[in-house]
Amino acid sequence: MLLCHGFTSDPASMRPWGEHLRDAGINVIAPLLPGHGFTWRELAKSRWQEWYGELDAALDKALALGHPVFAGGLSMGGSLSLRLAEQRGGDLAGLVLVNPAILDDKPHGFLAPALRYVMPTVASIGSDLNKPDVREHTTDRTPVAAYAQLRQLWKVTRPELPRVTVPIRLFVSAEDHIVSSRNSTVIRAGVRSKDIESTVLHRSYHVATLDYDAPLIFEGTVEFINRQLSKSRGVS
């Protein structure tokens, strides 16, 4: 399983998910995307092509293990996983997406490329969690330049959603203050996957992999992987 963290975050948001998969006998690779995990200044210098390139290289490492590979992630991690399925769908056995992002819900988001020169950062978007005692590891500020790069990723990924044909397991929070459920609706309508299953998370906000419904995601992922592997082996 190739797990991808979200925008401004790091693999710590994937760790409980990855540990559950490991305990279920599934190999896990969770790369740190370029620019992430450090200061907002480092993130501001990175480009979406670098983020995707890291995930693309991680897929090669996963394939080298000689087993079917599934990919997925949270938020932007879902965006990048979808892009991977568009470009290398033949190398993937399926996707698991948690509150994936594919479009800009912010009314002034299109101004980001220009605003970055006069307003380099905005407040951190991390830790949208229902659990009061949990914090997500993120940059202390959100660089506008990096957000402009995220919009570019969506711009190239959304039109090519019909290229995605792999099975998809989708988890969407009923209340998400970062990514609206419209994103998942657009993804479902855009892909050509015949096997799509969705679960609504009623007790979690955006960072659902660290929230109350995390066990549903973790157990659902294992069930999804086992079901897809059984199908590929012809086992009912």
Rank of each mutant, 00 (worst) to 15 (best):
M119D: 02
L170T: 01
S75T: 03
N183I: 13
I196L: 13
D211P: 06
V134S: 04
V156P: 02
A123S: 15
E223D: 14
R151Q: 12
I196G: 11
L153F: 14
S9F: 00
L84Q: 08
D128L: 07
R151I: 06
A93C: 09
H202N: 11
R88L: 06
R88H: 14
P16K: 02
V207A: 12
R192L: 13
I102M: 00
E19T: 06
T8S: 04
L170Y: 03
S75D: 02
L65A: 08
L97K: 00
R192K: 15
L32F: 07
R141K: 15
E175Y: 12
P31F: 10
E42Q: 12
E160N: 15
L59I: 09
A112D: 10
H206A: 06
S204Q: 05
R88D: 05
E160W: 09
K231S: 11
R192E: 12
P132S: 08
I225L: 03
G89S: 08
W154V: 01
L43T: 02
G109V: 12
P162I: 13
E19L: 04
L74P: 01
E50N: 06
P167F: 07
L65Y: 13
H5R: 01
F110A: 11
D104R: 09
V96F: 04
A30S: 15
K155D: 05
Q49I: 14
R22S: 08
I187S: 07
Y147I: 14
